[in-house]
């Protein structure tokens, strides 16, 4: 056990260090959005490059009109530990989301809009998926200014080139 713990904390060799994190956010539930943001921001804090590709429902997190209205799922989410029928009651999602937001504020986790500003200031690149933008009939001006551009999957993969780049789908 002790030997195992030691391996976990040992600093890896320099050439094996993560150089770039390429995150793909495809969901708009607040827990998934924060997972992507915290991973990207955490990478920048460690001197690791970070980029996020917002696709499908993930685009809600960077739409000016929607980003402050993201919810946690109270139906079909066993981690809520409430009966599914109860989770479907009107106002339940808003209630659970508010509870979660309060807890996050206590931990100094910024709201979505402010988090996007922090990510941009830290040098994290934010991209919108062209196909999803077209599908949802969105215009560039519907998206926050921090989005660098609307790009294709191919463009995103091109940006992932290089050693020690990791891709993560959320």
């Amino acid at each position: 056990m002790e030997a195992e713990a030691k391996t976990m904390t040992e600093t890896p060799k320099k050439d094996a260090k993560v150089k770039k994190m390429m995150l793909i956010l495809s969901k708009a539930t607040i827990d998934n959005v924060y997972a992507a943001f915290i991973l990207a921001n955490g990478a920048r804090m460690e001197g690791i490059e970070a980029e996020i590709f917002f696709t499908f429902f993930g685009l809600e997190a960077v739409q000016k009109k929607k980003l402050e209205h993201l919810h946690v799922a109270t139906v079909g989410n066993p981690a809520m530990h409430i009966p599914t029928l109860l989770g479907g009651l009107p106002g339940m999602e808003a209630f659970a989301t508010n509870m979660m937001k309060k807890e996050m504020e206590k931990l100094d986790i910024p709201p979505v809009g402010e988090f996007i500003e922090i990510l941009e200031a830290s040098g994290c690149k934010l991209w919108a998926c062209k196909l999803a933008v077209d599908m949802f009939h969105l215009k560039r001006e519907d998206l926050v200014d921090e989005i660098s551009d609307v790009i294709t999957v191919g463009d995103f993969y091109t940006r992932a080139e290089g050693e020690n780049t990791h891709l993560l789908f959320i």
């Binding site: 921001n41 920048r44 804090m45 460690e46 001197g47 100094d108 922090i118 200031a121 830290s122 040098g123």
Partner: peptide, 24 residues
Amino acid sequence: SIRKVGKSGVVDIKGFYALFPGGP
């Protein structure tokens, strides 16, 4: 936290990353 430093009025987040590049 990065957020606190950014709100300190001493330096903004962009400036913090510029002063201490690679893990401010």
